[in-house]
Design a protein around this nucleic acid. Structure first.
Lengths: 344, 344
DNA sequence: TTGTAGGCGTTATCAG
DNA sequence: CTGATAACGCCTACAA
């Protein structure tokens, strides 16, 4: 016998399969003795219920799909960790697929997951959220419902699409204010990947921050990037050749900031004396850079857990309003008072 | 109609469900016209085959389980990326669970995945491989087989258990030789997590390297750790108070090395002038530390892909011998010639 | 080449 | 409280 099933147990226990089924799922209408007896037997036989068979009839797989832009990004990994722990403790499995930061792969990945019949979808850092409304009949759940989609750091109001995000703009703005209070007047920004709403919001926050502090926004102070180490590295050269030269820079994320820090060290640009650097995310590594990175904390694990909660709530038919979390600035050694006199 | 199924198509196409089934899976015995007609109809109706129903009958889910010690570890993330791409292109989904570096959670996670009927299991950095032989009937596949388990960086010969790993000992030994050739005589080692075979092998390699270079192994030069940033950070203090003071240190992984680098910078210990540091893994970040980290490259993505290939091979009943990859030393700025004269 | 019938392991709806 | 019985959506001999 390859696999002990519910009927095997039934036979040995001299009861019907349905009774066994009920015993196994703590159904109220069954005598305690029977249940105990059956449970013991199941245990002893090493019975493992077939999730597959169960899913076929219930229409639920107890599985959540996660499409991640890139697990190699510490922010994503950290969020994923939160997602995993929450999912696991809710009895849900996690089916994962990577989009490799590519919008078209993103919906391909989503489709694959949906085809594997995940109950819901969590997208960590979507870059193509508008396409979810087009996912053909793929989102149709066998139970007749539509798989909820939870977007991380991407506000998007559409039926069946939920969101959990940070106050990206507010935090970015706060970071600029911090720099302004330290006396910096020329603050650059290394932008994030196009298409991502978090990039957009952080850029907006940067501009708001400048305005709030009566600083003039200069287009050339905004550098392109994609939230990767290389971007920060390359940004330094650009910063050094600018006129007037910025004395501080806010980066889309810690990765870019770390790249920038490395470039600065290599080029002999002293941080924070000659240049103050602020990151975003507060990944574990940011405490171990040289100098330690001032950054904006994002409650990464909590966001992941919130995404799962939102998903389950949607699944249960309960209301699941957008969640917006806020982040604190973590002051470390990469920022300092502006040493340059301002000659307008 | 909640979900279009094979019988819906059959009805509309005026054929039997089995014909539709055959058309959908490119079965040879069906007329091309029918197939075309049916395929078109399916497409038009937005038909999505139910993986669940399919799995119930075939006994295969086309899903591979991955238990990862911690996605937050860049090495693990990088390997996972390789696993994902290989799995995806083979048409397999990925069910993931985290062990949080805890041996007991590791087998719990494995069990959860197995209960979700994954076809095979890949364990990224196992710390409790001997327990896989005890996984009760959980590994029993519905098709009557046993789910193959592929261990990463953990050699383990047992039926149904496969392995893909690096030549950890060889690489560690080579790293020691490099340091020795740079003139270092007192080389410390920051060890990795207990239980992991890669820790064990790298430690062994370190000792072999010492022996090969006629250096005396001193127990106090071996520091405990778990492959995390903190371990390197804490190791520095220990190193500084040793007599004689080591002039070089090999770390279990890049994370520990990065922590060590940070501590050194904070304490004013100049790297590599006063201390040479070598990591292991060559994670992307290691090129962006200050100074850039000399380390041992591990073909991370390739290892992940090899793990998937091994798993699929085992699934197909083909032989899948252990795979051992080798790593190159990547020479960067954290190592240098020993500046201290040797006073025995 | 195509149709029929049985079954994969569970759950759920009925009667008893 | 318990037992038949019918799905769930698909695959696969076997029959036609």
């Amino acid at each position: 016998m390859t696999h002990v099933s519910i009927v095997d147990i039934a036979r040995l226990a001299q009861v019907s399969p349905s009774t066994v089924s009920r015993a196994l799922q703590n159904h109220p209408r069954i005598s305690p003795e029977r249940r105990a007896e059956i449970l013991a037997l199941a245990e002893q036989l090493g019975y493992r219920p077939s999730q597959v068979a169960r899913s076929l009839v219930t229409g639920q797989t107890h599985t959540i799909g996660v499409v991640a832009s890139d697990v190699t990004d510490p922010f994503v990994a950290e969020v994923l960790k939160g997602v995993e722990s929450a999912a696991r403790s809710a009895g849900y499995g996690l089916l994962i697929a990577m989009s490799n930061r590519d919008p078209s792969q993103e919906i391909t990945a989503a489709t694959v997951l949906l085809d594997h019949q995940v109950d819901g979808l969590i997208v960590i850092s979507s870059r193509a959220p508008d396409r979810y409304r087009q996912l053909p009949r793929a989102r149709e759940n066998a139970a007749g419902g539509v798989a909820p989609v939870v977007l991380l750091n991407h506000d998007f109001s559409e039926a069946g699409v939920y969101s959990v995000r940070m106050d990206n703009a507010g935090a970015a703005s706060a970071a600029v204010t911090l720099l302004s209070q330290l006396g910096h007047r020329h603050i650059a920004f290394v932008a994030g990947p196009g298409g991502g709403q978090s990039s957009h919001a952080r850029l907006a926050g940067y501009l708001q921050g400048l305005a709030a502090n009566h600083l003039t926004p200069l287009p050339e102070l905004i550098l392109q990037g994609a939230g990767m180490l290389e971007d920060g590295w390359e940004a330094l050269t650009a910063l050094q050749t600018m006129q007037p030269r910025p004395t501080a820079v806010l980066c889309y994320n810690d990765l870019a900031a770390i790249g920038l820090l490395a470039a600065a060290a290599r080029s002999g640009v002293s941080v924070p004396d000659a240049l103050s650097v602020v990151g975003f995310d507060n990944v574990p590594l940011s405490a171990y850079t040289v100098p330690a990175l001032t950054t904006v904390e994002q409650p990464k694990a909590a966001m992941g857990q919130a995404a799962v909660r939102t998903c389950l709530r949607a699944l249960a038919g309960e209301p699941a309003p957008p969640i917006v979390m806020s982040g604190q600035i973590v002051l470390r050694a990469s920022t300092g008072v502006c040493r340059l006199s301002d000659r307008a």
